[in-house]
Structure formats: structure tokens, C-alpha cells
């Protein structure tokens, strides 16, 4: 049963990932990433990370993906030119990615860690539950937790500053206002 769930999640995650990089329309790529994230949340559940899986669905598939959909719709379709900017890019890039996969797999399989071939340690009841994660977040990892909240605040302010409409230096301010009123 667990094998079936793992392979279903793995196929969903991998198919979503390949669709993200293969589809030409950015809007469809965003939707493929949603499929990928939901499959990955299923895999997180198999790894007894219930709270992280729930946060993945709520934060990523809920909030971040809505942001992506809005920007993809605002910016509109972008036709990627068919020519290569760097000669042989379309051949070299998959080769580099394949070499990276082989290297990572060699690093994992060649590590000689015996516990990797097993299920791992027996885990206590309530492992990964909101209670356990909350206890860790607010006791042992309080400072990283607060630092993360500060980072989010800075990023939100930065995004507002970056994307805000500001007067164009080429044109005087009045011209902008007249255009906006008309």
C-alpha cells in the first residue's frame, strides 16, 4: 500500500516537474507546478511530516501559486524564440542536468550509510504533528522562527517598493497625472 502511494506521488511529482520545463505557455507551467506541489505534499505525508504537508498545500498551492497565476496573467504569454542564444544550448543543458543527477545519485548511493536502505529509526507517536512542530518552533527554534518572520516582512516591503508605480524620469510628473485622469 505504501509502495503504491509512493509511486503515485513520485509519478505525479516528476510528471509535474517535467511539464513545468516542457510546456511553452508560462500559464500552463504554473498549473503543472500546482500538480507537482500536491504530489509532493502526498510524499511528505508518507514521511510522517503532516504539518509540513499541510503548510505546503496552504502556503504554496494556496498563496504562492495564486501570486504566480496573477503575474502570469498580467505579463501575458511570452513566445520564446526558437534559436539558441548560446550555440548548442538545447543539447548541452539536458546533458548537464543528467550529469548532475548521476553525480547526486552517486553521492547518495556511494555514501555507504547502512540505514539508507531501511525504513530508518522507529519514530515516536505524534512525530511531525502540529503539536510536536509547534513545540520545536516556539522552544528550541524560537530565534530562527522570529528571523524567518522578519525576513518575510522585509521581502513584502521590498516587493511593494519594487513593483510600485513611480514617476518616469523621462516624462514629467504632470503628464502622468493627466494621462491617468483621461
Amino acid at each position: 500500500m505504501e509502495q503504491v502511494a509512493f509511486f503515485a506521488g513520485a509519478i505525479g511529482a516528476l510528471g509535474g516537474a517535467i511539464a513545468v520545463i516542457a510546456l511553452r505557455n508560462p500559464f500552463y507551467s504554473v498549473l503543472a507546478l500546482v500538480v507537482h506541489l500536491f504530489s509532493l505534499a502526498g510524499l511528505f505525508l508518507l514521511l510522517h511530516a503532516e504539518f509540513v504537508a499541510a503548510a505546503q498545500v496552504v502556503v504554496y498551492a494556496g498563496a504562492v501559486m495564486v501570486l504566480y497565476v496573477f503575474v502570469a496573467a498580467y505579463v501575458g504569454g511570452f513566445e520564446e524564440p526558437l534559436w539558441d542564444a548560446i550555440p548548442g544550448q538545447r543539447i548541452l543543458a539536458p546533458l548537464v542536468a543528467g550529469a548532475l543527477f548521476i553525480e547526486l545519485s552517486v553521492a547518495v548511493l556511494g555514501s555507504g550509510l547502512k540505514s539508507l536502505g531501511t525504513e530508518g529509526a522507529t519514530i515516536p507517536v505524534g512525530f511531525g504533528s502540529p503539536e510536536a512542530v509547534g513545540r520545536l518552533l516556539l522552544e528550541r527554534f524560537l530565534i530562527p522562527f522570529e528571523a524567518a518572520s522578519l525576513l518575510l516582512l522585509i521581502a513584502a516591503v521590498g516587493a511593494v517598493v519594487l513593483a510600485a508605480r513611480r514617476p518616469d524620469p523621462e516624462r514629467p510628473l504632470e503628464a502622468d497625472n493627466v494621462e491617468g485622469a483621461a
Binding site: E2, Q3, F6, A10, A13, L14, A17, I18, V20, I21, L43, L46, L47, E80, Q89, R90, L92, A93, P94, V96, A97, G98, L100, F101, L104, S105, V108, L109, S115, L116, G117, T118, E119, G120
Partner: peptide
């Protein structure tokens, strides 16, 4: 499931993402 399966899947997804950064 063995941990190795998850790690190999993770390596595959990472390589897919890296290839996408290079090609898109």
C-alpha cells in the same frame, strides 16, 4: 519505503529543475 528511493527521487527532481533553469 527505503530512504534511498526518496533521495533518488529528490535528485531527479533537482536535476529537472536545474535543466529547466539552463534551458528556459
Amino acid at each position: 519505503m527505503d530512504t534511498t528511493w526518496y533521495l533518488v527521487l529528490s535528485a531527479l527532481l533537482f536535476a529537472t529543475g536545474a535543466g529547466g533553469v539552463l534551458i528556459r
